[in-house]
Every structure is written in structure tokens, then in C-alpha cells.
């Protein structure tokens, strides 16, 4: 659970302290945004969902239990807001098949705490990627973000394909794993704990 400082902030939030709530917003808003994206897969809805969810959380802050996980609490609100958006979207035929196909099925079986943990991992991994050298960051971008074939990546970064496969990429992944480990994040059983993996 949270350290004492964080718990003090949570206590202040539960008493209605707006500044304390703002501190938690600053700390968690990016992770909450990730969860909203994962739940909805609707980039065009993200800002609306998040604005509504954060306003509700703010208005309900006095009912927050400071012994609870704040992120999990907000994620629960985000999920409720998304469900309402889906219902309204369906009524006005805005969302069409896209909404029917994703979102409501995905993540429904995961607890808010699981989703919060998932967002935490992705948030920290993003920071680790940002710390990579330009050359390694380029490999990550081409190979994993854009899913380019190794041959193409090798040409782009001017490295032999065999070297890329056998040395550069394994090293890079190990570097990222160590970075996450320093942040006390272990991904060895991450996907099994997350209910079977991502939808891609």
C-alpha cells in the first residue's frame, strides 16, 4: 500500500482537500488515461471519458476510503463512465460496430486493481524506453511499435540482421527488463496474472 506520505495525501483527499486531490491527479492521470484507452480502445472518446471520470472522482472524493487503492478507485469510476458512454453511443448510433466489437468485452473480467497494475507497468515501461539511447529507441520504434520485419529494421539502423536478432534486440530487452526491475516491476508472470494477455 502507499507510504505514509501518500497515505496522508489520501486522508486529506477523503476530507475534501482539493490540493491533495490535484496532487493525486498529477501523479496518476497518465496511468488513468492508459486504462481508459485500454477499456475503450476509442481514442476519440478518451478526453471526454477522462474529464467526466475525474470530475466525478473529485465530486465524490469525500466518500473515498483512504485505506483503498486510489488508482483502483478512479479506474472503477472510469469503467462506469465508459459503460454509460457505450449505452448513450448505442442509443445515438454513434459508436456503431466498433464499440460493439471491443471494450465492453475486453477488460470486463479484470478488476480495477488489475487494470491499474497493467497501466502502472506500461507507464513505467514507457519511461524506460524514453531512457534508451537514440539508436536503441529507433530499433524499438521500428521493430515493436511499427512491427517492421527484422530485415527492414536492420536496413534502417544499418546493422546486420543476424546481429540485430542475436545481440542487439536481446540486449535491448534485457536493458528494459532491468529498468523495470529497478522500479520493482516483474513481468515474468505479468500476462498470466492479467488474464491471458493483450488483444492485438
Amino acid at each position: 500500500m502507499a507510504d505514509k506520505t501518500e497515505h496522508d495525501i489520501l486522508m486529506a483527499v477523503a476530507k475534501g482537500d482539493e490540493a491533495a486531490f490535484a496532487r493525486l491527479y498529477d501523479r496518476y492521470q497518465q496511468r488513468v488515461r492508459l486504462v481508459a484507452w485500454r477499456i475503450s480502445h476509442r481514442p476519440d472518446w478518451l478526453d471526454d471519458i477522462l474529464n467526466e471520470a475525474w470530475c466525478r472522482a473529485f465530486n465524490q472524493r469525500k466518500s473515498f476510503d483512504p485505506d483503498r487503492d486510489f488508482m483502483g478507485w478512479v479506474v472503477g469510476i472510469v469503467r462506469n463512465v465508459y459503460r454509460e458512454f457505450c449505452r448513450k453511443g448505442k442509443l445515438s448510433i454513434v459508436s456503431s460496430e466498433e464499440t460493439d466489437a471491443v471494450g465492453e468485452v475486453e477488460s470486463e473480467d479484470q478488476s480495477p486493481e488489475d487494470l491499474a497494475h497493467w497501466a502502472d507497468v506500461l507507464f513505467e515501461l514507457n519511461q524506460c524506453v524514453d531512457q534508451l539511447s537514440d539508436a536503441d529507441a529507433e530499433i524499438v520504434r521500428l521493430r515493436f511499435f511499427e512491427n517492421q520485419p527484422l530485415r527492414v529494421v536492420a536496413q534502417q539502423v544499418n546493422v546486420a540482421e543476424a546481429t540485430l536478432r542475436a545481440i542487439r534486440i536481446p540486449e535491448l530487452i534485457e536493458r528494459l527488463r532491468r529498468c523495470l526491475a529497478q522500479k520493482k516491476i516483474d513481468i515474468s508472470d505479468f500476462f498470466s496474472a492479467q488474464g491471458g494477455g493483450e488483444s492485438q
Binding site: A22, Y25, Q29, Q30, R33, L34, A36, W37, R38, H41, P43, L46, D47, L50, N51, W54, C55, F58, V121, L122, L125, N126, V129, V140, R141, F144, F145, E146, N147, I173, L176, R177, I187, S188, F190, F191, G197, E198, Q200
Partner: peptide
């Protein structure tokens, strides 16, 4: 798992899940 996570991270970045959103508090 790491490759899977990186692919998800790329998708998240591409979809604006790392944008800062509106400035100020909602």
C-alpha cells in the same frame, strides 16, 4: 512478455494514450 508489452506500448502511443490531454484540472 516484453515484446508483447512493447507492441502494446507502441499501440498506446499511436492512439494518443500518452497525450497529456486538456491542460488544467478537469
Amino acid at each position: 512478455n516484453m515484446e508483447h508489452l512493447l507492441a502494446t506500448l507502441g499501440e498506446a502511443r499511436q492512439n494518443g494514450a500518452f497525450d497529456s490531454g486538456a491542460s488544467g484540472y478537469p
